[in-house]
Amino acid sequence: MPFVKANTHSLHYSDSHPDGPPTPNGLTFLFIHGLGSSQNYYFPVIPHLTSKHRCVTIDTYGSARSAYTNDPISIPGIAADAIAVLDELKISKAVVVGHSMGGLTVTEIGSRYPDRVLGVVAIGPTHPSEMLVTVMSKRSETVLETGMESMANSIPSAAVGSRSTPLHKAFIRELLLGQDPKGYAALCRAISTAQPADYAAVQAPFLLIAGEEDKSASMEGCEHIFQNVSSKNKSLEVLKGVGHWHCIEAADEVGSLIAQLADGIVV
C-alpha cells in the first residue's frame, strides 16, 4: 500500500495521476475526509474529475489505514500534514476539498497557506460551536469505552437524508468500523477544541456544498462560513434530501459541482 510522509506521520494515500494532470489545463485536487471516514469516501466522486485532473486522496493521521501513534491531533495539524503531502509529492498548488472535519481543515488551509491553494471546496463543513463541543466530547468518551460499534450502529441512519439507501448506510457503516477507537477519539477532541478559521482570509475560488437535511453541519453554520469568506468567485449549493454524507448520498451531483468549479479556474 502506498504511504507518504507528512511531518512525523505516515499517511496512506492514492494518486490518480502520479506524473501530473493528464491534460494541459488540468488541476491537482487534494481530498481530505471527515471524522470516521477515509479516502474511500471520495471514490464515488473522483471519476467526474480524473479524465482532466489529478486527484490525490489521503487517510488523515489517526484514520483508517493511517495508524494512530498517540500524537495529539488538531485541525491546524491536519492542515500542516496536508501541505506536507503536497511537498512530498512535489505539488506546488492544488484545489483542496474537505468534508465535515475536512471542511474545517480546508478553510484553515485556505486562510493559512493561500499560496498553495487554487480553490477550496468545503462539503458540509462544521463551524465550531458549543453544541459541537458537547457532541464530540461525548463521542470521544463513548468509543474509548465501547469501541466503534456504537457509532457504526447509529450514525449510518441518523446522519443521512431522506434520499439515502441501504447501500449508502452500509458504506458509511464500513467506514466507521474501519477506525481505530483511540484515533477516532483523538479526532473528536481535535474538533471539540477547534477554533474557526480566519474565513475572511480565504480568497481562492470557493465552493460550499451543503445538505438540505444535514443535522451535523447546520445550514446556519454553512451560511456563516460562506458569507465571511472573501472569495470573489464563490458559490453555495444545497443538495435536496441529502444529509451529512454528501459524497455517498449524492455522488454525481457533488462530482458535477466540483468539476464546474474546476472549469472556472485558470492555472
Rank of each mutant, 00 (worst) to 15 (best):
K169Y: 08
Q195V: 12
L187M: 14
T165H: 08
D198T: 12
L176I: 11
A170P: 03
A185Q: 02
A185T: 03
A185H: 04
S157D: 12
S150G: 06
R189L: 15
N153D: 15
R173L: 12
M151K: 04
Y199K: 04
L176G: 00
A190W: 05
C188A: 07
A186K: 04
L175V: 00
A201L: 09
Q195K: 15
A204R: 10
G161H: 05
A194M: 12
P196I: 08
A200S: 15
R173K: 13
D180M: 01
A158I: 02
P166N: 10
L187D: 02
L177M: 11
V160P: 10
S154T: 14
A210D: 13
R163T: 14
F206E: 08
R189I: 14
A190L: 06
C188P: 09
T193R: 11
F171R: 00
A197T: 05
S154M: 13
A204K: 10
L175D: 09
A152G: 08
K169T: 07
R189F: 08
L167I: 13
N153R: 12
A201C: 10
A159G: 11
Q195S: 14
A194Q: 07
H168C: 13
S150N: 11
A158C: 04
M151S: 14
L177V: 04
A200N: 13
Q179V: 01
Q203S: 13
Y199I: 12
G183T: 02
I209M: 07
K182L: 10
G178L: 00
N153M: 14
L167M: 13
A204P: 09
Q179Y: 02
L177D: 00
A185I: 01
A197W: 06
I209F: 03
T165R: 05
P196G: 04
S154V: 11
S162I: 01
Y184R: 00
Q195Y: 08
T165K: 05
K182I: 01
G178W: 00
A200L: 09
A197P: 06
A159W: 11
